[in-house]
Each structure stands twice: as structure tokens, then as C-alpha cells.
Computed example of a mutant assay.
Amino acid sequence: MRKVTMADVARLANVSKSTVSQYLNKRYEYMSEETKKRIAEAIEQLQYRPNVIARSLKQKSTATIGVIVFNILHMLTTQVLRAIEDMCQQHDFHVIVCNTDDDPEKERKYIDMLWAKQVDGFIIFPTGKNVDLYKKMIEARLPLVFVDRTVEGIDVDAVLLDNEGAVQLAVRYLVKQGYKHIGLVAPPFASHVIPRTERIHAFRHVLRAANLPIEEEWIVTEQVKRIPERLDALLRQNKLPEAIFAINDLTLMEVLTFVKKHQLSIPTDVALISIDDVPFASVYTPSLTTIAQPAFDMGKKAAERLFMQMDGETRPQMFRLAPKLIERDSAKKRGEKNEW
């Protein structure tokens, strides 16, 4: 089948090729409604699709951004992606999403692939392990924004949660509810995973400020799927803390798996609070007290900064967005409360 061209559309609509081009680029200033209607009907009748490659070469833009995430199953990731997509839609841009599983080699391959496709900018949840490549991107003046993490020595826009503030909200709330023996569950400590390291450090700091004990066996940093095993061991030794702070939605799920297995009562047997306001938090029994990340605002800010870079209007900045405590039932406790 012969490929339909812009000339075919122009001939059927009885207009010039330049008029069709203006229509496709949404330049309607001097175009009558009747002309727009004829062109639209011709495009529909002929099933015409513009040559995106030729168009991008002419305009020096593919109207596409690449978004590289470390775990597409993470709730923060999906919400940030939705906000980025909404912002790009407003700018008539497309989004290509790649998932690295926090693997530096996959990240490198995806950056190379998207760069070869000449995307107009990158929003990356970085692994932190491709410093040389990040530097090359900066040297090439590629618009680049990091989300959720920063990388030492890489001066780019970054949008993160105020992780210390989130931990303070969680621990101070537990203390005010009367809890003194508080544990933490997290994936393994990794210095390049900024949210994880900041939350673990802040947890220790806030406990010290409250003059509460820091029991190392209550700080469970483990492969996510093995968290229930570690909690099982504490329960068998009768050393389970009064309250558990899960640092993200994935660790929260493992704590809930442990609770269900042993038919524990929340918050009577163990209180629970987590970062990430999971969709089922309000309908779970009991409802789950959470620290919500402003994920949509983070995605929106990341996209805004990327478009500002494309327009040459910005210098690199770091943005720390504020968390919000959503009080429900899983961390409440009757009786006398401690004063902070």
C-alpha cells in the first residue's frame, strides 16, 4: 500500500501543503473553521499519520522525554510518573518509561538508548553508580532532573522528600501516643540510596532526642522478602518492639504479612506507622497511620524544572518537599501519653 503523504491531504482538502503543515503544528491564527474542518476530514479519510522522524529533524525536537525509574512497582514511582505524564500532555510531549530494578548496567543501557533516540530531556531516579555517564549528559547540556535521590558530585536539579522531616513526624507521633520501644524496618543499608540512608540516620537521631533506647536488633535492615523472618525471630524471643516504623510501602507490606501470619492485633500487640500513604490504608482494619509523600507534587516539580531547562531558564537546585502525617488507627494507644 502506498504511503499517504501531506500532499495527498492537501489535494483532498483543496489547500496547500504549507496550510496542512500549519494545521498539524496547531498554527490556526489565519485559518478559517471551514479550512480546519476540511483538513481534519481529509486526514481522517486518508488515515494520514505525520512522519515523526522527519518532523523532529526539521524542528530539532522529538517532543519526547525519557523517564528512568528504579522500581516501577513502588507506589511513589507510579504517582510521580502520573504527574510527569500529565505535565507532558499539557506541553504536547510524549514519555518513554524505563525500569532499571536499581541495576546500574540496565540504567546505562537505557540512557544510551534514549540518548540515541534523541529525547529532549531525562527525568531519572538514579542508581548513583553511573557518575561518568551523568557527567557526560551534563557536558552535552542534556536537560536532566533527578527524583528521590541525589548523586554526589553531580550538580543537577533534584526533587526529593524531606526525609528527616518525615521520620520526625512518624517517631514523634509514636512517642506522643506513649510508645517507648520503637523499631524500624528497611531494605538493606545502601549509601547510594539517599531516602533509605537519610531515614535510618534520622530514626536514630530522633530517638536520641527523645531519650529513648536504640536497640540494634529493633533496626531491621534486610532484603524485603526476608523481613517477616527477622520479625519472627524477635517474636519468638519475646523481643518484638511496641511499635514498628516501616520506611516505605514495600516494607509495610512485609510487616502486614508478618502480622497476619501470627494473628497479631494492631495496635494492641504492635503499633504500626509507615512512609507512603498506600491506597488501602484507609480501608485496612485497623486503618493505617501513614506519612504521605507529596508524590504528585514531586512529579510536577520535576517536569516543570525539565521544561525550564529546555527553555534555558534555570540553574540546578535541590527541592525538598514536605511530608504529611495522616492519622488513623494503627498507631493509637490508650492511656497516658508522653510529652515531647
Rank of each mutant, 00 (worst) to 15 (best):
A331N: 05
T257Y: 02
S265V: 01
L288Y: 02
S18V: 07
K60H: 13
T78G: 13
L46T: 03
G178I: 00
Y23M: 07
K261P: 02
S287Q: 03
V20A: 09
R305Q: 13
F319T: 06
F319E: 10
P126Y: 08
Q309V: 00
R315K: 14
H74S: 04
K135I: 10
I68K: 07
A83K: 05
N71G: 08
E105G: 06
P323I: 00
E222C: 14
V171I: 15
Q90D: 04
S282H: 13
E327F: 11
T257P: 03
L73E: 14
V119Y: 04
P267C: 15
E242A: 15
A292T: 06
R49S: 12
S191W: 04
L12T: 04
L234M: 05
F93C: 08
P323C: 03
D276I: 08
E339V: 13
T78K: 07
M298K: 14
Q47H: 08
R199A: 10
L288E: 00
P294E: 14
K17P: 09
E304W: 09
D329S: 14
E139I: 04
L234R: 00
N130H: 12
K261G: 03
L142I: 10
Y110G: 11
A7C: 03
F125R: 08
V97L: 12
S330N: 15
I244R: 00
Y48H: 08
F122P: 00
V224T: 14
A54K: 06
V185M: 12
F307L: 12
C98H: 02
L252D: 08
M253D: 02
V259W: 13
A170T: 00
V15C: 02
V80S: 02
I84A: 13
D92I: 11
V119G: 04
I326C: 09
P104Y: 06
K60I: 02
G121R: 04
K58Y: 01
K129I: 02
L81E: 14
F70V: 09
S32Y: 08
H181L: 12
R11D: 12
